[in-house]
Design a protein around this nucleic acid. Structure first.
Lengths: 140, 140
DNA sequence: TAATGACTTATGCGTTTGCATCTATCCTAA
DNA sequence: TTAGGATAGATGCAAACGCATAAGTCATTA
């Protein structure tokens, strides 16, 4: 077992443990965690996002994301309109209700995250962010 | 945005990017990545594992795991038998075919992992393993 | 400008998932 | 010993998923 494999296994284990814990918390309201993730990704952009771009940040297949967006539009959280510059594509953004819902869930969830990671020192948090940042960057 | 939240987001992003990359590689044969994970977890234990114990290591709901085990038993990868000490429970282990399949997939996959994490120095790999280890430990 | 191939999103379809619940067994204490 | 609650795993069912592919648009080149 190489160092790299141990590190990856440990990362997966931490991801699974934390994800399960966050999922079990009673903060998600009318959304699933995956749906919240879509709203969160959109909340970070002020200009509308392309489906394909959003798909890069979400752990879902393209068809699954397409249908999840369907449902979120239907339910009034998302605005989907044709991209004027490229008629193949769409531009996605949060509706006011979507933004509101994202905030309402994001606040308590952010507190859970802070609490769960409070076993790490500030230095360790910085190291973790730096190292994982390096990993996702190398994929592009 | 606190340090903790930045670290968690960066961890999620790295997990998503790497998972997608590994999933796209042509090493999984007749298994999905999730199924492989079950076989891998079992390959690490020499004594049979309880379903509930296995469930702690896998990112699946209890019913979903129960049925996935069903299918893996059906397909000849897993052996499921009643636990003699607790008649509510079952004891899961790999069949020879299951062990063989796990190895056949595990080898090339481990190489992919090594390659993907080769952007990190040995020190960074150790730090990553230590920090994420601390995170999953604090959940127990 | 017409043809070819790449790209973006949507849809058909069979499989898998999660939630709620059920059954069976275990454990504790009256 | 037996009633009540906890725990382990399985099952019914609707919702969501991934794979393969379709439909529409763009970009290149002949």
């Amino acid at each position: 077992m190489t160092r790299a494999n141990e590190a990856w296994e440990s990362l997966m284990k931490a991801y699974a443990a934390l994800t399960k814990q966050f999922n079990a918390e009673d903060v998600w309201g009318e959304l699933t965690m995956r749906e919240y993730d879509v709203l969160y990704q959109l909340s970070k952009c002020d200009s509308p996002l392309r489906m394909s771009e959003l798909n890069r940040h979400v752990l879902l297949s393209q068809p699954a994301l397409s249908r999840m967006v369907d449902r979120l539009v239907e339910r009034g959280y998302l605005d989907r309109r044709p991209d004027p510059g490229d008629r193949r594509g769409v531009r996605l953004s949060l509706t006011p209700a979507g933004r509101e819902t994202q905030r309402a869930i994001g606040l308590p969830h952010a507190r859970s995250v802070t609490r769960a990671l409070s076993v790490l020192t500030p230095e360790e948090l910085d190291q973790l962010a730096a190292i994982t940042g390096k990993l996702s960057q190398s994929e592009e």
